[in-house]
Design a protein around this nucleic acid. Structure first.
Lengths: 347, 347
DNA sequence: ACTTATTTTGCATACGCATGCTAAATTCCA
DNA sequence: TGGAATTTAGCATGCGTATGCAAAATAAGT
């Protein structure tokens, strides 16, 4: 009933040219063709020439699927994430895909669904992925384990491995928190508040930890705290609450730029406050929008470039997913000073 | 030299369970296993039960690669795009991936490179993609043709097919331009300027066309024009130029929200102008940021949801990539009024 | 109960490429 | 120039699943 193929009619899916046809035309064996298109194999110059010629004439293209079946190497890397909402992720995926393409790898995208978790997993494992990058908070560890069991290299991107022995790439988030704390203090801030991300996220924990350390080193403590859960609406609400009390913070540290934008907007347009004159705001990540004139957000830059490079290296190196020892790359951060923070005169 | 496999040592890549092993355990033939895991095949209840049991015990999972080789159906859809810069594309890719996942399809991402064009193409065609969505301006028609030659369904997303007979999904951009023109005129704008996107883009052409039609219908013409080429820097420069002359526009229509943000920022923070009091600004697309308080951008919403649905339908329907006739779905747009436009008192 | 129609099962093979092994061709060395 | 060392070509088989065909088993019909 569905898709009735008319016998004899020109079929939509043209049968692709195979190595056998090329071999016939070139007057060599199929193996010769295969070897011509594989790296690190020995073929005489003449044979190669003949094969290439025939291949060109027939516009032959090796079938990656068949090759995968034979070599157990798909050249496909899976990227798992939950949403592109935070602008960091489009950047990451773009750069990661580009880097992988340069290595002859391809990118398969999995949008993790909150509910329907397993279905995607099954699919992932059905394709002989060469590796998986997990940039999704949800269900990360479960998926990581499954992949590890199958012997598929896994890299946790931007999230530390909690207990499980999985390779990971993160920024030096604790240092990032310290940098921000020290910076705000140096500029004379006395009442520093923090709006957190998901409380179960290692990234958020480390950032907060670093911030607190910097405060403690100056005999200060966090003035106030709210939870944004990495969601803009919650961050806005938290900001309103923080600025709604009697004594207000003079600086708000937000666990991600993405939330920081919402915070700034709320301060400016809902509460009629001036950033940074009434309150300084800083974020984490340095996504593209942070440098937009509307925000000019002081933040700590994650070097996506370095993180991507490290990720690719982990994926490609044979030691990936050995037993027990996991490699955890921590990439340096850098404070980016912009106009959302200002000097406070001591009062 | 590279990756020397120690014979007998526990190998990293665990050999996956095959249908043959399941068959053995279940006491049936391999075909029975295969049929159990294929839809629309006849297996007795008892056999199915036995197979499922054995499969569960061995945690068997059909090998998608082998299945692809056999059926010539990979269940993989390629998405080609040039960059995630414009926030519309993260949204599109996320929704498209989700929609495809619901259909049991998977998403392979190709970041089109300006220079190195062909390499990606070859790769695309090597995997037996079930379909390709092209959301990249560059080289679109060339790639579309290659895919069509191979009998791979192609859908051009958000760009009309120029001459080539390829299926496409676009918004009703001309109508969008009309809507904006009429809206601005109704609010009393007299000097309407346009900052264009890439001049070779059908989307840009249609939007401009619609805008001009609305003006003409009111016996007006475009007051001024600049070219933004879909790049923020150029859009900013164009805005500065437009507002730098003696007589200034009272409204600027920008060919994409993404550029409109840069325009607004430049007006506000470089030129000290007020939006919308000094000049109204409108965009196209309605990306997430457009509703942020900082911008409150009046724009025409592309219904990504509808476009995605149409795209999936085109991809899945057998008629895709027939000969000659191409299907061009045009999705309705909707004006979204926000605060970047204001009533003009007639002067 | 016996034939006929229908469903279920297994066998065998194809999908397109990679690769171990052996035979053939070439190069090297004396 | 003859034989050993080395390179290259081809043969045959495997990768894991799907499926046409025919045999076997079951259901239906009279």
């Amino acid at each position: 009933m569905t898709n009735p193929k008319v016998r004899g009619a020109p079929d939509a899916l043209k049968r692709a040219v195979t190595s056998i046809e090329v071999a016939a035309r070139a007057g060599v064996s199929q193996s010769a063709v295969s070897r011509t298109f594989s790296v690190g194999t020995s073929v005489s110059d003449e044979t190669r020439r003949k094969v290439m010629r025939a291949a060109r004439e027939l516009s032959y293209r090796p079938n990656a699927i068949a090759r995968t079946l034979s070599t157990r190497q798909s050249n496909i890397i899976g990227i798992v994430l939950s949403t592109f909402e935070n602008q960091l992720y489009p950047v990451v995926v773009e750069q990661l895909s580009r880097a992988l393409q340069l290595q002859g790898k391809h990118t398969m995208l999995f949008l993790a669904d909150k509910q329907d978790s397993d279905s995607a997993f099954n699919e992932i494992l059905s394709y002989q992925l060469d590796g998986v990058v997990i940039a999704s908070a949800t269900l990360a560890s479960k998926l990581a384990k499954q992949c590890a069991d199958m012997g598929i290299p896994v890299v946790m991107f931007n999230r530390a491995t909690d207990g499980t022995s999985t390779d990971s790439v993160t920024s030096d988030n604790r240092r990032a928190g310290q940098l921000i704390g020290a910076h705000l203090i140096a500029l004379g801030h006395k009442r520093i508040a923090y709006i957190s991300g998901r409380e179960d996220s290692s990234t958020n924990r480390d950032r907060e930890h670093g911030l607190r350390e910097a405060l403690r080193a100056n005999e200060m403590t966090l003035f106030a705290q709210g939870n944004g859960n990495y969601e803009q609406a919650l961050a806005s609400a938290a900001a309103e609450k923080l600025m709604g009390g009697r004594t207000k913070p003079d600086a708000i540290v937000v666990a991600s730029d993405h939330m920081a934008f919402a915070v700034i907007d709320t301060l400016r347009y809902s509460m009629n406050l001036h950033v940074p004159n009434d309150v300084s705001v800083v974020g984490f990540d340095d996504v593209p929008q942070s440098s937009w004139l509307a925000y000019q957000l002081t933040t700590v830059a994650q070097s996506v470039e370095k993180m991507v490079r490290a990720t690719v290296e982990l994926l490609m190196s044979p030691a990936a997913s050995g037993q027990g020892v996991s490699r955890n790359v921590v990439v340096a951060c850098e404070l980016v000073e912009r106009a959302s923070v200002t000097q406070r005169t001591h009062t």
